[in-house]
């Protein structure tokens, strides 16, 4: 009979991936940023729905606001990608499919982040 170490492998004995801390750290660091940025945004733009377009652009166009907003969208898209990745890895089988989905998630997040920051730059440029 096989010993405790023998027999069919547990996947757990595949070589460790060694990139996992960075993922975890990135999730926490972006979370720490969002911890501050999210309430700031909610209290600043929570009533944006009732604002006139020009007032809204005025508000976003202020350098400090534009910077904060861009930072928020970068951190949020990054945080969302990392979080989605975890969910995908938890539930999606086979692993090849989950790997493809993870790539897709990353790509989508890059597109989203570029779009958001691009829009902020566009608004700021439009103010001049």
């Amino acid at each position: 009979m096989d010993g405790v170490n023998g027999g069919e492998d547990v996947g757990a004995r595949l070589a460790p991936s060694r990139a996992a801390v960075s993922h975890w750290l990135g999730q926490r660091l972006s979370a720490a940023l969002l911890l501050v940025l999210v309430p700031w945004l909610m209290f600043s733009l929570g009533s944006a729905g009732g604002m006139e377009l020009d007032d809204l652009r005025q508000w976003i166009g202020r350098p400090s606001h534009a910077l904060g907003l861009a930072l928020f969208f970068l951190a949020a898209w990054y945080h969302a990608a990392l979080g989605l990745e975890v969910v995908v890895q938890d539930y999606v089988r086979p692993e090849s499919l989950s790997a493809v989905l993870v790539l897709g998630v990353r790509l989508a997040a890059v597109v989203g982040a570029v779009a958001a920051v691009g829009a902020v730059i566009w608004i700021v440029a439009g103010m001049q």
Partner: peptide, 14 residues
């Protein structure tokens, strides 16, 4: 620590 730095072995714990 090296052996635990893995998305599945350790970081499935939430």
């Amino acid at each position: 620590l090296d052996a635990l730095d893995d998305a599945y072995r350790l970081y499935r714990c939430h």
